[in-house]
Design a protein around this nucleic acid. Structure first.
Lengths: 190, 190
DNA sequence: TTGCTCCTCACGTCACGTGAGGTGGC
DNA sequence: TTGCTCCTCACGTCACGTGAGGTGGC
């Protein structure tokens, strides 16, 4: 198939299009040594062999998870070494970043209200949430017990959920405190 | 009080500490002309007058919402002009950014699973969520009606919530589609 | 011959952080 | 006199994007 040395492998522009990347991204990966193509017969044009394409596939996958290029390089060079650590690290970073953006959202909604701009943009609020649950037949007691369950079974996710409702940090801690107190007695299996 | 020309206003380090900023941040604001102190009597040291302090307070507030410095400058120079537009624009950006990070989270959880790393980190999942609701006495029918209500009353927030559960985009659209179909008939006031 | 793709610099991005190397005030 | 704070460059960050200016292959 690809016996001819000059036409062996793909050119940079073609490869970029195939993976939905920009040409300059691939040039950059070459410059930092993350993805090095062979330079063809005369050493003038980049040629990406099958091995390079496979490697790029990996790179794209990790990039879609927001893993920085330096970490990707480490993973690809010795996968056994730090793969799990890198991925879990990134997950933790993501949680922190999302919490930060939620906080910005909260501040922003506050600013919009104090500035008198009303426009009911697609941001969740605590009131809207409880309204929906009530409309579905949830009583106040149900919600209290539900928070307790949630806090007991997965405290981190419970915190994240409260952040999703755009509740301020001190209020979140308050809710979690009484939820944890109530959640002491466990009931039912699973 | 502050009649003495040489001691009028605060120094940069002191002001930075008071606002929880770094000294270099204030130097930067000066360089780009966002917050210009008077240069004291001899023009050697920065002196921040009360007017500058008030301005900094505004800057810090908008920064806490992630508004870029260029936009903050525009807002402070003519507030009537583009304040609402800038803030709403930022809110939209935040929604996009959060959705992007959620997507990264989903990809990451997928990667961790395919790589065989199990560690039940604090990420919400659809199964865990329905499990919690069932434990609180919610039936499958209740959930269906609840999604329909949610989609009808605030489609954007509904989408955000489904993203929070780390559901993939096609599945989200599927759920919203049947929820919208069911939600056609409205019931009850408010 | 006309486009299309390819190439290599070099600079810009955003909001600072981090030294290096030196001076002023209590 | 000793620290503390102040000062001004100048370079680094992260992952590319964007020209400028020029060449190769169908």
């Amino acid at each position: 198939m690809d016996v001819d040395a000059t036409t062996c492998g793909e050119t940079v522009g073609r490869l970029a299009r195939r993976f939905g990347l920009s040409r300059s991204a691939l040039l950059y990966y070459h410059r930092i040594g993350l993805l090095v193509p062979s330079m063809g017969g005369d050493g003038r044009y980049r040629r990406y062999t099958q091995g390079a394409v496979d490697r790029l596939e990996q790179i794209v996958r990790y990039r879609a998870a927001g893993v920085p290029l330096a970490d990707i390089r480490r993973i690809l060079d010795r996968p056994a070494d730090g793969l799990a650590a890198v991925l879990e690290n990134r997950l933790e970073q993501l949680n922190v970043a999302i919490a930060g953006l939620r906080e910005q959202q909260r501040v922003l909604v506050e600013l919009l209200r104090s500035e008198g701009v009303h426009r009911s943009v697609g941001v969740m609020s605590c009131e809207r949430w409880t309204g929906l649950l009530e409309a579905a037949g949830f009583t106040h007691d149900d919600m209290v017990r539900w928070h307790a369950d949630f806090e007991r079974s997965d405290p981190e996710a419970h915190r994240e959920f409260l952040e999703f409702l755009c509740i301020s940090k001190p209020e979140i801690e308050e809710i979690r405190a009484w939820a944890a107190k109530l959640g002491g007695g466990r009931r039912g299996a699973s």
